[in-house]
């Protein structure tokens, strides 16, 4: 970094920076409004404008919000963790087989899986609920996890398959000659190399499943509903005055985990997405 001369401040450069700052503002303002509003009291909201500073920071909105959706937050955790882990693990094994142990028809198989990536949520609602009913998993957390796993497999398999395709075959051949079997090669050689793509997969699946609303509404009910559905119920209640501070705080609570995941693991996400792009 220090080796490069500091670029001179020209008009062109100023324009670029100004544009970037503007773009930042466009994206940040809603967040700021939400944060500010969530810490205001209802009076404060009525009297001030959207961007005004709270007269006194009040945690009331957050506490009330947590009281009403906190339980559902844990529901989401209970759905997301197994769904993300299982779909990533299965995707990894699928990708490994589809890239390193091609079998007759594996290309067709992969093509069909790829097709799964383009299926809209709505299309699988009826078949999925039929299947869950047959399995006796309707309206259970397990059932919702199953739907998320199956739907996510297309994506996770695609991620891992494309990553492993860029890994030289010779690595697997060398390991086979060294006496390693199917799972040993996977566990000892490929998996340790896969950190970037595992990260991509985890982040992608986490975001998808945590933010899911449709499956949550359809396949869960009452006590098993995820936080997104609870948030919707909270915000859309028509009784009483609108408590914007509570709504905003609840929305922040529901959105926080994905935000945290991106901040913590975001750099892996970029690295992993570009990892397969450069072939050796």
């Amino acid at each position: 970094m220090s080796d490069f001369a500091q670029p001179r401040l020209t008009l062109g450069r100023l324009t670029i920076h100004a544009t970037l700052l503007l773009a930042c503002a466009v994206y940040l303002v809603p967040l700021i409004v939400m944060l500010l509003t969530s810490f205001k009291t209802p009076e404060d909201i009525r009297t001030g404008n959207l961007l005004s500073w709270p007269e006194a920071f009040s945690a009331m909105g957050w506490l009330t919000a947590w009281d009403s959706i906190g339980g559902y937050f844990w529901n989401s955790v209970k759905i997301v963790l197994p769904a993300v882990l299982i779909s990533t693990a299965l995707g990894a094994i699928n990708g490994y087989v589809l890239s390193m142990w091609r079998f007759r028809g594996s290309q067709l198989f992969f093509g069909l899986l790829l097709f799964g990536c383009f299926l809209p949520f709505q299309v699988i609602l009826l078949p999925a609920s039929f299947t869950l009913g047959k399995l006796g998993l309707a309206n259970t957390t397990t059932g919702l996890v199953l739907v998320h796993v199956v739907y996510g497999l297309a994506f996770t398999t695609l991620f891992f398959r494309n990553f492993y395709v860029s890994v030289p075959d010779a690595l697997v051949r060398a390991a086979r000659l060294d006496g390693a079997g199917f799972f040993t090669i996977f566990g000892r050689i490929l998996l340790p190399m896969s950190v970037p793509i595992i990260m991509v997969c985890l982040i992608w699946q986490f975001t998808q499943i945590w933010n899911d609303f449709l499956f949550g509404v359809v396949f869960a009910s009452g006590d098993t509903q995820p936080v997104t559905v609870a948030l919707n119920n909270l915000v859309n209640t028509s009784t009483g005055a609108k408590q914007y501070n509570v709504d905003m705080a609840a929305a922040m609570i529901a959105g926080l985990p994905t935000l945290v995941v991106y901040v913590v693991a975001g750099k892996y996400f970029l690295r992993g997405l570009t990892a397969g792009a450069v072939k050796g």
Partner: peptide
């Protein structure tokens, strides 16, 4: 392959990177 007791050196070396 593992029962043949044959070792191979690959053009790309194929060292286990991790």
């Amino acid at each position: 392959p593992k029962d043949r007791d044959i070792a191979m050196v690959f053009q790309s070396y194929a060292l286990y990177p991790t």
